[in-house]
Simulated scan of single mutants.
Amino acid sequence: MRGGGRRVCAVVVAAVCALLLSPPCCRRVRSDETRHGSNVSAVHFDSFTRQFHRDYEADGEECHRRRRYFRDATKRHAFLNSFSTAPQSAKYGINQFSDLSQKEFRDLYLRASSDRAPLFSGPKTDRLPAKFDWRDRAAVAPVQNQLACGSCWAFSVVGAVQSAHAIGGSHVELLSVQQVLDCSFKNEGCNGGSPSRALNWLKQTGVKLVPQSEYPYKAKSGICHFFSQSHDGVSVKSFTAHDFGGQEEAMMGQLLERGPLTAVVDAVSWQDYQGGIIQHHCSSQWSNHAVLVVGYDATGDIPHWIVQNSWGTTWGNEGYVYIKIGGNVCGIADSVAAVFL
């Protein structure tokens, strides 16, 4: 990119970050006020509370505060969408997080960390297909919902293990995220963790992940439930972790050869994401959220990664987010792990 392009990009990112990180600013709007300037915000907030089953006391402080966060979110959406003018660009708007402050959102959902990974130095895969998606091969489990627990790091790891198990010839089976949450002692449960540390724990201990039905998800940290080595489950033999910065084509090859990949990204702007391909509004400097990269599509005007999130199917593209390939958008290539069973 030439110098002028870099300066424009820097200005955009700085402006977006300033907006995303600015302090939130709402008050309970009385019925008579909805006829005036607050009309649109009030009507949309009431619609939002019905859609997402919020039950706030009509004139309580909680409702007062949530309406304020909601109104700030609508302003933020307009700003973010002003940069998304190209076809297929990401769109930002109302979703299940629109009544959270930006700090609440970060504290609840963006709790992953990444360990420094070595630069990838392996060979590139020749003759990559223009499109590849592990969902087409029945190797990806359905989208899950971490709820109000910072367990994205565990969901991404378990997602990768589930897919590796399916690629090996088994049916896709939901394995226990709660087991990883409770037992991966080098991580902090709902307070956050690192996919690499979780994978290293699985490799070193030989712990077998049991079915989710035997160790169900509770969206809170608990006491580790141990199983005997004779108990049925799926164990991790090894894993690789690399930085694919500047080598996203090689990352495409790894996805093709190894299966879905865990990645730690900057997802601050994802609070407002509704769909489309993210090309802006992300840094590659602050890793805070773990996801599962399940495919890519380079057949259209904007080549992009296909990424499964753990915020339920009401978020994004039915639980998925698309991220432009090239430029390390959202830090998608900074810390990427593949699993071996």
Rank of each mutant, 00 (worst) to 15 (best):
V180Y: 03
V13D: 08
A333N: 08
R258T: 07
A166Q: 01
Y320W: 04
G4V: 12
R7L: 14
D301N: 12
A198C: 14
P303K: 08
G316L: 01
H77Y: 14
R27I: 03
S121K: 13
G246V: 07
G319P: 09
V236D: 09
R65M: 01
S22V: 09
E57W: 07
F227H: 11
V336K: 12
V43N: 01
Q102G: 10
Y92L: 00
N191P: 02
S156N: 10
V180E: 13
V236L: 10
G326N: 10
V265F: 06
E61Q: 13
G150W: 13
N81P: 02
R2L: 05
V339Y: 04
G192E: 00
Q162M: 12
K324M: 09
V293I: 15
S184I: 08
D297T: 13
R7I: 01
V13E: 14
H289Q: 09
N95R: 09
T49I: 10
D107K: 13
L199A: 08
V172W: 01
T205S: 04
N39V: 04
A267H: 00
P87E: 15
A164S: 09
M1L: 06
G122I: 08
C190K: 14
E173C: 00
Q274L: 15
S101A: 07
F97E: 03
L108K: 14
H165Q: 11
Y320C: 02
G222K: 09
L110M: 12
E61L: 11
I302Q: 15
S84H: 05
R135K: 14
